[in-house]
Amino acid sequence: MPRVSRRTLIKLFGIIPSAAIASHFSLNAAKYDSVLEQAWQAWQQNLDIKPLPYLQATKITNLPEAEKQKLIQQEFAEDKVISVNGLVLSYIETAILAQLYLEQV
């Protein structure tokens, strides 16, 4: 799970660039799904608001990569974090994953 979520993060935020990501996800689609689902559950347990409104409120969707990172780091510093199966992620990160889950189901 952490590896997948890490890869998901890579894909979404470019935290750790790596060429292997895509092949891993195609190898095991279940991984990707489970990460999203767990993020959704974590989001539900922690926050009332839905992921999309949260993302819209942070205006993160269209920001350049460096600014996204800054916002995410700020969330960590402000204690806006959620444990997704132990992996400590910021609200924004979790919201993006949770939103992806909602779009899938």
Binding site: I15, I72, F76, A77, D79, V81, S83, V88, S90
Partner: peptide, 21 residues
């Protein structure tokens, strides 16, 4: 360890997974 995890993220150094399971 929670403090460590948050600080690692806040400094943009990566992510930490706590393994209570």
């Amino acid at each position: 360890l929670n403090v460590l995890a948050k600080e690692f993220g806040a400094l943009g150094l990566g992510r930490v997974k706590l393994n209570p399971e």
